[in-house]
C-alpha cells in the first residue's frame, strides 16, 4: 500500500513540476517581462525601473532560483490591479470554487449511481432512456450556452431564479445544474456499463441463490465492485470540472478561482493568473492522490497487483 502510494505520488507530482516550470518558461519566452506586466502606455523609464526592481536584469538561473523560492513561499508578487498579495487573492477565491465543484460532484455521483443502477436493472426502461439522452446532451451541448438558456428561461422569462450572484440558495440552482450535465452524463453511462457486467458475475448468482434481497444484491454485492471504474472516471471529471467552473463562474458572477483567472487575463494581471493557475494545479495534484487512495481502499483486487508492478 505504501509503495503503491509513493509510486502514485511521484507520478502525480510530475505534472505539477511541469506546470511550475512551464509557467516560468512561458512568462520569460515572450522577451521582456516588462511588456507583459506593465500597461501598454508605460514609459521607458517605468520599464527600466520595473526590470531592475524585479531582478529581470539578472542571469536566467538566478531568476529561476528566485522564482522557485517564491513558489515555495507562496509568494507570487502583487496584483497590478488591486495591489494585494496575489496568493492571498487566489486563496480567498478558492473556497467558492471548491463549494461549487464539491456540491456538483457529490450530486453527480449520487444521481449517476441511482439512475445508472436503475438503468442496468431495467434495460430499455425509463431510466435507461434518460441516461442515454443525458449522455448525448452532455456530449453535444456547450455549457456556456446551456447556462444562457437557463438564464433566459428561468431568470428572465419566468423570474424564478436570480441571473447571477451568490445570495441565497436559489442562486446555486443554475450554476450547479449547468456544471452537473457533463459529469452526470458521462458517469451514468459508466455506472450503467459496469453494473450490467457486475450483475452477470457468478458471485451475484451466489448471493441471489442464498436468498439475498434485490436491494442487498445491488448495493452490497454489485455496486461495491462496479464503483471502482466510476471512481476513476469521477476523478478525471473533477479535473475537467475546472474547465466548466471557469465558464460558469464567469457567466453567473461567482467569485471563484475561474472568474479570477479570466478577469486577470482580461486585465493583464499576470501575478494573479500565475497564483491561480498554480493553486489549481496543486489542488488537482492533491485530488489525484486522494482518488488513488480511495481506489485502493475500495477494490481489494487493485492493491496487490499495482503494488507489485
Amino acid at each position: 500500500m505504501l509503495i503503491y502510494l509513493r509510486k502514485r505520488i511521484l507520478s502525480s507530482a510530475l505534472p505539477l513540476v511541469v506546470v511550475i516550470v512551464g509557467v516560468f518558461a512561458l512568462a520569460r519566452m515572450t522577451g521582456n517581462p516588462a511588456s507583459l506586466y506593465l500597461p501598454l502606455n508605460a514609459t521607458q523609464q517605468m520599464r527600466d525601473e520595473f526590470t531592475a526592481r524585479n531582478g529581470f536584469d539578472q542571469p536566467l538561473l538566478v531568476q529561476m532560483a528566485d522564482y522557485f523560492g517564491g513558489v515555495l513561499r507562496l509568494d507570487f508578487g502583487q496584483s497590478l490591479r488591486t495591489g494585494q498579495d496575489a496568493a492571498a487573492m487566489a486563496l480567498r477565491a478558492f473556497p467558492a470554487t471548491l463549494q461549487l465543484a464539491a456540491t456538483t460532484m457529490v450530486l453527480a455521483v449520487l444521481l449517476a449511481l441511482v439512475v445508472g443502477c436503475w438503468a442496468a436493472l431495467k434495460p430499455n426502461g425509463i431510466a435507461d432512456r434518460i441516461s442515454s439522452f443525458v449522455s448525448m446532451a452532455a456530449a453535444s451541448i456547450p455549457d456556456f450556452w446551456l447556462a444562457i438558456v437557463g438564464i433566459w428561461v428561468f431568470a428572465i422569462s419566468l423570474g424564478w431564479l436570480p441571473t447571477s450572484g451568490v445570495s441565497g440558495a436559489s442562486a446555486w440552482v443554475l450554476p450547479i445544474a449547468t456544471l452537473l450535465l457533463r459529469p452526470f452524463g458521462v458517469l451514468v453511462q459508466i455506472v450503467r456499463g459496469s453494473m450490467v457486467s457486475a450483475l452477470s458475475e457468478p458471485y451475484i448468482k451466489l448471493a441471489r441463490s442464498r436468498g439475498a434481497g434485490e436491494l442487498r444484491v445491488v448495493t452490497h454485492h454489485a455496486l461495491r465492485n462496479a464503483a471502482a471504474p466510476a471512481l476513476t472516471v469521477a476523478g478525471d471529471l473533477t479535473v475537467g470540472l475546472v474547465n466548466g467552473a471557469v465558464v460558469v463562474e464567469t457567466i453567473f458572477g461567482w467569485p471563484g478561482i475561474g472568474k479570477l483567472m479570466i478577469d486577470s487575463i482580461l486585465q493583464r494581471d499576470f501575478a494573479v493568473l500565475q497564483a491561480a493557475v498554480l493553486l489549481t494545479a496543486v489542488a488537482i495534484f492533491a485530488l489525484n492522490i486522494l482518488i488513488d487512495m480511495g481506489y485502493a481502499l475500495l477494490d481489494a483486487r487493485v492493491r496487490p497487483v499495482t503494488a507489485r508492478a
Partner: peptide
C-alpha cells in the same frame, strides 16, 4: 499523462495570455 492531468482550459488560458 502530464498533458491529460491538467485541465485543458488552464493550459489554453496561460498560453493565450502570453
Amino acid at each position: 499523462d502530464v498533458i491529460m492531468s491538467f485541465p485543458s482550459l488552464l493550459l489554453a488560458v496561460v498560453v493565450l495570455y502570453v
